[in-house]
Amino acid sequence: MGLWISTMGRSGTGPRRRLGCGYGIGYGIGIGIRCCGYGIGIRYGCGCGCGCGREERGMVRERHDGSASRRRRGQGELEGLVLAALRSADGPVNAGWVQERLGADLAYTTVVTILTRLLAKGAVTRQRAGRSFVWEPAADEAGLAALRMRKVLDGESDREAVLASFVTALGPDDEQLIRALLNEATDEPEG
């Protein structure tokens, strides 16, 4: 099934990005089976090594640790938790510290996965200390949310078709016209 998923996926975005998880396997045929959700399909489909994508894999592994009955964490919730833990530290800390700090049933590898994911987003920085890395926050939670929102918006080529924007793109002569209208709106007293 793993092979099946990776051949069904959208081409051009890289074989490991955005295939299953949250986006539905059947992009090509329009069937909305969720990959990392429920049923046998998960175990085989993701097997945590399917084309599930770097992003979800940490969460899936965490799920497969025997916490299948628990509510699935929203994408990004863990990232926020890890980032908050990092920010509460006095200085650079290692992944083990973060794991202890979170206290939850998170695997060490999960923490490292999330930290790596945050690193790719530019939300944390790391330095080598001995045989491992120490991590430091670069962006706060708001900055992380901004990065994630940007990803959503940039991923949608025709975002105005889906989201109502405050202003739409301007035509060639619109800029001049708006400047004239703004002068008019500013010059006269408030009406």
Binding site: G22, E141, R148, M149
Partner: peptide, 13 residues
């Protein structure tokens, strides 16, 4: 999908 992704991006807020 876009709506859900946008909401997910804001879950930490």
């Amino acid at each position: 999908t876009v709506r859900r992704a946008a909401h997910r991006a804001l879950t930490a807020r």
